[in-house]
């Protein structure tokens, strides 16, 4: 997969300039870790209120794309706007822009030394300058939203993974973000805990939150997303409505990826052929 995918189509860059009215604008974004090129000339716009699921095999660059949006990864080249702020401008006040971008991690990353309520208030008081009383009010409201109102005095280590992830979502929401980024929010969860987190995210989508979600949950993407982006080898291969990208994929890479994800137990005759198997394995772990 990391070999030159000459036939790989890149979705043509949108014509409109970055910034104007979009929630996120990405132009000609490339990212390399040393010799390893992870993102290749990505351009896309995400509109306010849109719920975008980014899918693709591991190593396809989808997490890196998400992390570039709030500059947890520094792009190698290209430009990114969040609202009217250019994240890639060296003079941008990155801390100020990040306040408006909620981020939810695969490994939750709650602050283990703080109780649940303090996890939600610390950034409000230290970053937004809210009073502790006001911050607690906002925090309790958001704990209510994620169904965790009764656990505000717990430490993160006393909670299940699903509960921790819901707290992490509430922590981001307490900053009143304009948009939320989710980096495989359910990948570290036991299967029976995935549902409660997806339910919270579905509720957020229904409230009109702008969301960019890297996920392997095809059912969620099909049901909740306005738009699904399939990435492979650092390219955006397909980008469209879930009924099209998941329901009726155009590109062979999308088809084979979805086929494997939706039917994990099925081994195609092609896969058993030494070359086919090698390709199948390299798709999974490039």
């Amino acid at each position: 997969m990391s070999t030159t995918p000459s036939g790989m189509p890149s979705v043509s860059p949108p014509a409109a300039p970055g910034g104007a009215g979009h929630a996120i604008s990405i132009r000609n974004l490339s990212k390399a870790f040393g010799d390893n090129i992870v993102l290749r000339d990505i351009s896309m716009d995400i509109e306010p209120g849109q719920v975008v699921c980014v899918i693709g095999p591991s190593g396809s660059g989808k997490s890196t794309l998400l992390r570039c949006v709030n500059l947890l990864e520094q792009p190698t080249s290209g430009k990114i706007w969040v609202g009217n702020d250019e994240m890639t401008d060296p003079d941008v006040d990155i801390d100020k822009v990040r306040r408006r971008i909620g981020m939810v991690f695969q490994s939750f990353n709650l602050f283990p030394h703080l109780k649940v309520l303090d996890n939600l208030t610390i950034a409000q008081t230290k970053v937004l300058g809210r009073s502790l009383d006001e911050a607690k009010k906002v925090a309790r409201h958001n704990l209510e939203r994620v169904g965790m109102a009764d656990r505000e005095d717990a430490f993160p280590s006393q909670l299940s993974g699903g509960q921790q992830q819901r707290i992490a979502i509430a922590r981001s929401l307490s900053m009143d973000p304009e948009l939320m980024l989710f980096d495989e929010p359910t990948s570290a969860l036991d299967p029976e805990l995935v549902g409660e987190v997806l339910a919270v995210m579905k509720g957020l989508a229904a409230e009109g939150m702008t969301m960019m979600i890297v996920t392997h949950e095809m059912g969620f993407a099909r049901e909740v997303a306005d738009r699904v982006v399939f990435m492979d080898g650092g390219y955006v291969v397909e980008d469209g409505h879930p009924s099209q990208v998941i329901g009726d994929p155009k590109h062979a890479r999308t088809k084979s990826f979805l086929h494997r994800v939706l039917n994990p137990m099925v081994i195609e005759p092609d896969d058993i052929h030494p070359d086919g198997l090698r390709d199948a394995i390299s798709d999974l772990a490039p």
Binding site: N70, L72, D95, K96, R98, R99, I101, G102, M103, F105, S107, N109, L110, F111, I122, A123, K126, V127, L128, A168, R171, S172, M175
Partner: peptide, 22 residues
């Protein structure tokens, strides 16, 4: 863990604030 720094920075905390509070 590195994720602690990333989480704090994602909430808009400055590097110094992250160091001392988290």
């Amino acid at each position: 863990p590195k994720g602690q720094m990333e989480a704090a920075r994602s909430l808009g905390m400055s590097p110094g604030r992250t160091m001392f509070s988290i």
